[in-house]
Write a protein that binds this DNA or RNA. Structure first.
Lengths: 197, 197, 197, 197
DNA sequence: AATGAATGAGGTTTCATTCAT
DNA sequence: TATGAATGAAACCTCATTCAT
């Protein structure tokens, strides 16, 4: 995969995160990436192909930084959970609480009228939920049995975070997310306790 | 306010809920509302004005159905909370879990590049949170003192619901939302208990 | 049907006759018709719709001038046949033997990759053949029985004319067409005689 | 002349026969010929040069197969004429009556706006007509005198065939061509008879 | 002899908005 | 109030050709 292609993807990732997919015009990309109109189509067949490549690119970063480095680390599961929360907040602070979560954004923008995008985003959330469920299972310890229930709980925690980011974006105030995260922490504590008894 | 104007708003509300603001083209609206191109601009100065009017219109329905009829009713607060959850699920079932929440959608689509939209959506969430906080205060009873803390909790519950709707939209499966709602219920129980002790 | 739409069709008819369908660019049309880019799409959904409208327009002229006024007139069939030949030559002389026959041109350009065009052109040739076959039947008189055979003969005469026009266009010399027409005349004479015996 | 150049020409010949000149994109050629973009311009100065080379290439095959092997053979002229007709039908059957005659197609597409193409195609038809005229002269025998008249007749027969192919392409039905060929045969019989008397 | 990146004019189409009636 | 024609900038995409290696 050529450097230029990768460069276009990176540039577009930032633009699409901030403006959304449809609202990121090819001309924005060309200008930001400093390439000619025709040249873009040398690297990508269509804007959609770029969009999906951007999704892949951002997810590969997530996978590395969150799913692997944090959630799959050989550490105490509570530490891993806390690191995840810190990481999520950090990501949002980087763009001054304005952009929200790329995957959440694309879920909202594209799910209904582009099945390819929908599927990709769905899979991102599923993978995240899976890894998170495993961390919860570690917390519970050997007693952990009902995978289905843990997965459902993890899914709700992911939803809380995405909802927190959404509200945060609406208010442009990181406090909202931090606040929601507090509840997430409490919820996890309660969830684990119920198994420990 | 003329009937025709109201008619255009209603038609547009459905379209914008499903397709988003930018993706709802004027031509879609004109066709659905069966009015001429020029005539639209007799009722609205611009598409943006229509968009804001749509927001107002949908919120007025929310206000009536949720904030007033449900959350401000003279009933047991637990009943009111449950009715709200049922109402939220019902709204989503209507559009087969495909459209999501109008306000959540617009928060994501518009917050960053249209301040007027952002403010309006922010206010919707704030009013919802306020009313919900009061319901929680009722649950707690006379002991309820720290308004700030209750407001924050209510905000997190709103975030959970919005996040649940977002994930539900991504998976096109109402079960996700119902699942998240289960956690919301538990969270509220714990939150109240902590005051009762 | 508005005047402007008709105007665009007329202008395009001339352009497409001379340059072919694909080679007539929208910008050529806009310039010749003196309308704006957007306005074109007020009258036509696409370039293809215009192309088909142009075909209809030219055929309506053919129908009137050739199929009805000449071939269906209440005259001696030989006179009608001769008038047709004269009309065909005249049409070509108008564009200095350079453009050829619109229908022949489109048959060649479009038949293989646009079924809608192909069908329309096919129908033009069929209608022409039909009318011509009737003229031949009149020449034969009451003895005329085998419609199938007369139709086939008429089809061959149409082919001769189209082939004559094609060669004429290639040589840019009307003499080729006139030459072919001489053979057409002879062929008809022989064909009729064979029935008269 | 390098092998690669020849290879490109052959590949392009098939494409241009089926899609026409303008509609055969360089990218189609590069893909089919499996060569790089820049390399094409090592072998050809432009698309036009390729187009003309394709014309030459196809004509060289015609010359060999039709003009020499068939029409110039040392056989009875009637046999040669019949072999020509069979050959023509065969050529069309190969592409399921869909493509038509390359030279006819290019005559229609290019004559008006590319003089170089026009001349080349014109010369093809002229050479074909010449050879055919000689076959007719052989049929007539020593009495054959008026070369001009025989040439004109041969030209009309060529026109008939081209017209038959055109109509066949429009209807996508080989029967049309076979039908026209029947008339061609009859015409030749009559033409010769008139000299024999 | 070969590669594929770069160019840039031009292709069809879309769309919010304005104008004339 | 209402109509629909007109506008024109901008959208995505195509394509023959040139350039650097």
């Amino acid at each position: 995969m050529s450097d230029k292609r990768q460069h276009i993807i990176k540039i577009s990732a930032a633009l699409m995160h901030s403006k959304g997919y449809e609202n990121t015009k090819l001309s924005d990309i060309l200008q930001a990436a400093e390439i000619g109109k025709g040249n873009f189509y040398h690297y990508f067949e269509s804007k959609q192909e770029l969009g999906l490549a951007v999704l892949d690119y951002i997810f590969s970063y997530w996978k590395y930084a969150l799913l692997e480095n944090i959630l799959s680390a050989d550490k105490d599961p509570e530490v891993k959970f806390n690191e995840m929360l810190a990481w999520v907040v950090n990501q949002q602070k980087r763009n001054q609480s304005k952009c929200g979560c790329v995957f959440g954004n694309l879920a909202v923008e594209m799910s209904e009228h582009d099945e390819t995008f929908r599927r990709k985003v769905e899979s991102v959330f599923d993978q995240w939920t899976d890894k998170l469920a495993r961390v919860f299972a570690e917390m519970i310890g050997p007693a952990a049995g009902n995978d289905q229930q843990i997965f459902k709980f993890a899914q709700s925690i992911v939803a809380m975070l995405e909802g927190g980011i959404l509200l945060m974006k609406s208010k442009q105030d990181i406090a909202v997310l931090e606040n929601v995260i507090e509840l997430a922490r409490t919820s996890v504590r309660h969830f684990i306790q119920q198994y420990k008894q």
